[in-house]
């Protein structure tokens, strides 16, 4: 199959970007989308031109490094998948595919399709942890965790921090990411002692980073490769209201 790729090219953070068009010939449906980009890059390098910069690491949907908006959808058209898990069988020969970086003020473009997502790390540094070193694994029955709570905490902890939620949100809000992190601690006994301080600090840092305000559009839930649900956002709202109005923090 043959494809036309329209790719966002931007030399550096301060440069103005633009789209460039590339033809990809003789690729096969079982190839991954990134392999098609690799092919374009090999041809660019052979021709002595600058290859397309794009982030990727594990290429199996667990690291959260890829940051491509493919045909207007963060991570592309597949459900519950990252960009690196997308295959060319999702397209037809002759298709034109538009590739942009995740766009948000808090995610400045470094080069081409590579963005700086350290804003999410700073939100984690503000409170996304348990301060006490718990040592090695305790006896399993010393702290009882109900199954439904541990399941919900695990579902929230599945977040890989890719930032697709921010990219898909019409307001560039990071609420799904932050709420997943808040939830994963708030649901477990080990996270409870610091729950008030945590949600206040993480919410404050989130605002400082310049993300937008959530307006419950739920596009974040629809694009999340790990299927994090917006019920986590409601939980974070509850945690925040609790911390503001009932705690001494």
């Amino acid at each position: 199959m043959n494809l036309t790729l329209r790719v966002w090219r931007q030399k550096g953070p301060k440069e103005k970007g633009h789209f460039e068009t590339y033809q990809v010939q003789d690729v096969t449906p079982e190839m991954s989308f990134f392999e098609a980009l690799d092919k374009v890059n090999e041809e660019l390098i052979t021709a002595g031109r600058e290859p397309i910069a794009f982030d990727h690491d594990c290429r199996e949907g667990i690291c959260g490094t890829c940051s491509l908006t493919i045909n207007g959808q963060p991570h592309g058209p597949d459900e519950a998948a990252t960009g690196c898990q997308l295959h060319l069988r999702a397209f037809k020969s002759g298709d034109t595919i538009t590739i942009e970086p995740f766009r948000a003020r808090a995610f400045p473009v470094i080069k081409d399709l590579v963005i700086d997502r350290s804003a999410l790390d700073r939100v984690m540094t503000a409170g996304g942890f348990v301060s006490v070193n718990t040592g090695s694994a305790a006896e399993a029955n010393s702290i009882l965790v109900p199954k439904d709570k541990s399941d919900a905490a695990m579902d929230a902890a599945a977040c890989i921090g890719c930032g697709a939620c921010v990219a898909a949100c019409p307001n560039a809000s990071a609420m799904l990411f932050v709420s997943a992190k808040v939830s994963h601690f708030a649901l477990l006994p080990q996270g409870k002692p610091e729950r008030d301080r945590r949600v206040l600090a993480m919410q404050k840092q989130m605002d400082l980073e310049g993300f937008g305000n959530c307006s419950n559009e739920s596009e974040c839930e629809a694009v999340c490769p790990k299927e994090i649900k917006v019920c986590n956002i409601a939980r974070m709202n509850r945690e925040f209201l609790r911390a503001i109005f009932w705690s001494k923090e």
Binding site: T69, G72, A168, P170, A172, S173, G212, E219, A222, V223
Partner: peptide
């Protein structure tokens, strides 16, 4: 919060 807007935006069904 989004100074450079997308060239193409397609909803995945949330909105």
């Amino acid at each position: 919060a989004r100074p450079v807007s997308y060239e193409m935006t397609v909803s995945k069904g949330g909105r």
